[in-house]
């Protein structure tokens, strides 16, 4: 009898824990989540990683302070989404005319194995001159993706080679390093330009 009530309490306790976890899930990750705070990038001032830009200069999140920034992740062996994103950004920058000079625009590679400084340098040269490419050691890329709350994974391709799945979208930061907003992949220029201007005024 005693044993039975113990089991009963045990079951109730487990149920309560499960319910608490369930509520926690609902609030944190589930549909009940209102602002995905954990999914937003940190302010640039709280990030810490060290990379190399396509000109071989040592760079980090602090290099971006003082001007508004557009930062996105990609890889140059991507035939589709990345050239499309870079081409979109190039037209946004064209739309800003002279103001484009007051903006940092950075592609951080998620494929440092193939995206060496030289490879990035050649690649970004085909797009708007404001666009810079950052690469570095995998451990530093991992720190950067963690700070930006970006996910990526290497996926083998049938027939050899590999591709990278990664979080798309362009992160916008104010000159003070605060995260302002995100431009989703394929968002039209009509929506993108006002967001960029908002980041520049932030």
């Amino acid at each position: 009898m005693r044993r039975r009530s113990f089991l009963l309490y045990g079951a109730a306790g487990t149920g309560a824990i499960a319910a608490t976890l369930g509520i926690g899930w609902w609030q944190v990750d589930g549909p009940g989540a209102d602002a995905p705070v954990g999914k937003r990038p940190l302010p640039l001032t709280e990030m810490s990683f060290r990379l190399t830009d396509h000109e071989g200069k040592s760079v980090g999140p602090q290099s971006l302070l003082g001007r508004a920034s557009l930062v996105f992740f990609g890889f140059t062996y991507c035939p589709e989404v990345c050239p499309t994103t870079l081409a979109d950004i190039s037209t946004w920058l064209d739309g800003l005319d002279e103001d484009a000079k007051d903006l940092n625009v950075v592609l951080i590679t998620v494929d440092p194995e193939r995206d060496t400084v030289e490879a990035l340098s050649e690649y970004v040269g085909y797009f708007h001159p404001s666009i810079r490419g950052w690469t570095g050691r995998t451990s530093e890329i991992d720190r950067a993706t963690e700070d930006f709350r970006v996910r990526y994974e290497k996926v083998p391709l049938e027939g050899g080679g590999y591709t990278m799945n990664h979080t798309s979208g362009v992160f916008l930061f104010g000159a003070d390093g605060r995260h302002v907003t995100i431009i989703d992949y394929h968002e039209s220029r009509e929506f993108a330009l006002p967001k960029i201007r908002r980041a520049m005024e932030a």
Partner: peptide
């Protein structure tokens, strides 16, 4: 091939 972006904004092909 098809590129898709899931609800977490992760793009894959």
């Amino acid at each position: 091939h098809r590129s898709t972006t899931n609800e977490e904004n992760v793009t894959s092909m």
